[in-house]
């Protein structure tokens, strides 16, 4: 069967393999480009949060001479996050500012290190180790999602002042809750997709798909995505909870 592939592309413009551009596989390069575009999306959300936040008066602007320790919630000024997020599961009524969000940060950083350990095991083609570390990563992902569900639920139900929805919240101007739902919600959606991808590659690893393929590059690609999700949380943590 002598079939000839007549291509309209001139011979000199055809790339016939050889060294890969930027010395990474196509999928990995495209993952970087995708993450870059996702960076723009999250930057847009956080930049608009910052501009809207500083266009509202703060507590001290309307109460000159008072200290932040006298802070109370009002619709007139932007709330300070450590007074909004001070509840911890099983510790009802105890004021523990930012402790729960600190635990969530720890969970995500921990699942990031287990992910990179899975990538490292993939480089050594150690199937059992990849499985072990992927399971830890998946566990971390589910724990984070559960924590965020609790955080949302507590935020929505509130502490007796009417809770929060998109048009009203007991903590401050409506835009505060809107940004909370959009930014942490968009991040949570990313975590959810990350967990789905992690489960998928765990399933493939167990079935020996990557062993047959001869390399574990898929773990690396999904790993890039998972670390990015962790990275976004680092920024959300700073700009939403700390500043």
């Amino acid at each position: 069967m002598a079939t000839t592939h007549a291509s309209s592309t001139p011979e000199k413009l055809l790339w016939k393999g050889g060294i890969q551009p930027m010395k990474v596989g196509y999928g990995k390069l495209m993952m970087w480009i995708f993450l870059l575009s996702d960076t723009f999306t999250f930057s847009a959300l956080l930049i608009s949060y910052g501009l809207v936040r500083f266009s509202f008066p703060g507590f001290k602007d309307l109460n000159p001479g008072k200290s932040f320790s006298d802070f109370t919630f009002s619709q007139d000024w932007w709330p300070i996050p450590e007074r909004v997020f001070e509840a911890v599961p099983f510790l009802h009524g105890v004021s523990a500012p930012l402790v729960f969000v600190g635990i969530m940060t720890f969970i995500l950083i921990f699942s990031s290190v287990t992910m990179v350990l899975a990538v490292e095991a993939g480089h050594r083609r150690d199937k059992a180790d990849v499985e072990k570390w992927m399971l830890w990563t998946i566990l971390g992902g589910f724990t984070f999602l559960g924590s965020q569900a609790w955080e949302w639920s507590h935020f929505i139900h509130g502490t007796g002042g009417g809770g929060a929805n998109l048009v009203y919240n007991e903590y401050g101007p409506a835009a505060f809750a809107d940004f909370f739902f959009f930014i942490t919600g968009f991040h949570g959606t990313h975590v959810l997709s990350g967990v789905v991808l992690n489960v998928l590659i765990f399933y493939n690893t167990v079935n020996g798909v990557y062993e047959k393929r001869g390399h574990y590059e898929m773990i690396e690609k999904v790993g890039l995505y998972w670390h990015f999700v962790d990275l976004v949380w680092v920024f959300v943590f700073t700009f939403f909870y700390l500043v």
Partner: peptide
Amino acid sequence: YIVGTFMHLKEEVKSL
């Protein structure tokens, strides 16, 4: 640290 070490960007080529 996350991008450099966990995502191995430090080990990639300069153009990337």
